[in-house]
Design a protein around this nucleic acid. Structure first.
Length: 497
DNA sequence: GGACGGTGAAACTTCAGGTTGCCTC
DNA sequence: GAAGTTTCACCGTCC
């Protein structure tokens, strides 16, 4: 085997490898096991590189992705100035895009990343450096699967530029070197296991099969599952039959399917749930929550209901510091919750608190907290906030559909309001202004603070004042939408034309 | 003498990621 | 379990 020697310059093997890659005029990915590590690693690398004019421009772009740059944005921009970057799920999607594009163009030369990058689109580099092969899991630090290792190593070598690529895994000792090569270089990838047996997946499938009228009795249901990879793997048809029977019983109990003369039929709500593609368990929790609700619900109550679902996981972590504060909040808002608080000694309590923390985070967003604040207070990065908000929007939509079916008309308007507030991250008072195209959270707030609070106010204010508040383009757009045309700073009613 | 800043060790905290629905001028 | 971050004591420097 051919060996290469890499100069030890900095005492940090990753940085030394990076410097060696620079000498070769190549690019590299570095895979690490946490988001914080990805950021730190990119920072360490950037300290050894020089600024370039091209990167300076990219850094500016990255800073301006969000309204006001967060700590994370600044940190990323500082790295990018030197041609290194970090990449993980906490980044804003636009920033991720910029980094990927600029890496392809060769402006960004090093990316330190969590496995986001390994799973993502085809983006190879000459060199892949795998720094961490262990990751925190249920049983403390666990070795990552061989499959995942290969996935990362497989990013090395760009067919259009290089004849070969190098995947390097870092061992801290001779002993570790042997273990690693045995496990990952010579070892067999793990078998792939069917995920169908997981109850949430199973419930969803059973319901959708019945709903689509693919199967209408137990025998046909069994025949379907017998053909699956899951059945092929486990072979135990008796166990399979027991599990599926259990699922069917749940769906009947929840009122999502009916059994008549040994034939299954999805109910109206069952069909809709199958279409919405939410876990029937979640749907049942929603229905229970809706029944528990009175005439009015609060935003926090709704948010908490949707956060307390499997779909919303992983939830925000509750740290030791949070614990007391969350307990206080749970007491304060006790009457608002649509999913009851378990006792402190029950196993679900921890998850319940996590869902409360997640709901509180989104509530702050709806109260116009900015992303930097959310990062500080909730340890949630912009990318994660966005992902959670999208999920929440989908679940709120599903909830509104169930409210309609359950004839809870009074709640529909409140759920829809919650959706809009969440989508834009605004207080209720801004809602009338969001009807305008080109007006989001920031501009609506500006308008409101200048006493322009609805369509009527927009109509009556003169253009030059509006221009001062919004800038010319936006002001023009808004005025057009109330049927006025602006000609040389003069307004004319368009219906005079 | 006190404010300030840099340094390093100890204490503390936290730990990857992904898909789904629907609408609209 | 380990890396990253925060905290805090300690020391030197400057005014």
């Amino acid at each position: 085997m051919k060996t290469q020697k890499v100069d030890q310059v900095t005492g940090n093997p990753v940085v030394d490898l990076v410097l060696n890659t620079v000498e070769k005029k190549k690019q590299a990915f570095i895979f690490v096991n946490t988001k914080a590590s990805a950021e730190k690693c990119a920072e360490d690398i950037s300290e050894e590189l020089d600024k370039t004019p091209a990167c300076e421009l990219i850094a500016e772009k990255i800073l301006n992705v969000l309204g006001s740059p967060t700590k994370q944005c600044k940190r990323l921009a500082n790295c990018v100035r030197k041609g290194s970057a970090f990449h993980h799920s906490g980044l804003h999607s636009k920033q991720r895009e910029i980094i990927e594009d600029e890496f392809r163009l060769g402006n960004i030369r090093f990316i330190s990343a969590t496995p986001t990058l390994a799973a993502g689109l085809s983006m190879p580099a000459f060199r892949v450096i795998i720094r961490d092969v262990q990751r925190y899991g249920r049983r403390g630090m666990e070795f990552i699967p061989v499959l995942e290792f290969l996935q990362m190593a497989g990013r090395a070598g760009r067919p259009e530029f290089d004849d070969f690529g190098e995947a390097i895994v870092i061992a801290k000792s001779e002993g570790e070197k042997e273990n690693l090569s045995e496990k990952y270089l010579l070892g067999e990838p793990e078998d792939i296991y069917s995920k169908l047996a997981v109850e949430p997946v199973l419930r969803t499938y059973v319901l959708s099969l019945i709903s689509a009228a693919e199967v209408n009795n137990f025998e046909k249901l069994m025949n379907f599952f017998k053909e699956t990879f899951w059945a092929f793997q486990f072979k135990d048809m008796n166990q399979l039959s027991v599990t599926i029977k259990k699922m069917v019983k749940l769906l009947v109990d929840w009122g999502f399917i009916q059994e008549l003369d040994n034939k299954f039929r999805a109910t109206y709500s069952g069909k809709r749930i199958a279409e919405l593609y939410i876990d029937p368990y979640t749907a049942n929790e929603f229905v229970k929550g809706l029944k528990r609700s009175s005439e009015t619900v609060t935003l926090l109550g709704l948010l908490h209901l949707i956060c307390n679902t499997l779909e919303m996981r992983p939830l925000l972590n509750v740290t030791t510091k949070d614990f007391e504060k969350l307990q206080e909040k749970s007491l304060l808002h006790e009457k608002e919750f649509l999913s009851p608080e378990p006792s402190e000694f029950e196993s679900e309590y921890e998850d319940w608190l996590k869902s409360l923390k997640t709901a509180l985070m989104m509530h702050e967003w709806c109260e116009e907290a900015d992303e930097d604040f959310l990062m500080k207070e909730y340890n949630v990065r912009p990318g994660e906030t966005r992902a959670k908000i999208n999920l929440a929007d989908w679940l709120l939509y599903a909830l509104s559909e169930l409210a309609r079916i359950e004839q809870k008309q009074n709640l529909l308007a409140q759920i829809n309001k919650a959706r809009t507030r969440l989508k834009y991250g605004v207080k209720e008072e801004l809602l009338p202004l969001l009807k305008f195209k080109g007006i989001g959270r920031a501009r609506a707030r500006k308008l409101f603070n200048n006493k322009i609070r609805d369509v009527k106010d927009v109509k009556s204010i003169d253009f030059s004042t509006l221009k001062k508040i919004l800038g010319e383009k936006s002001a023009e757009g808004v005025k057009m939408q109330v049927g006025e045309k602006i000609v040389g700073n003069q307004r004319q009613l368009s219906d005079t034309f």
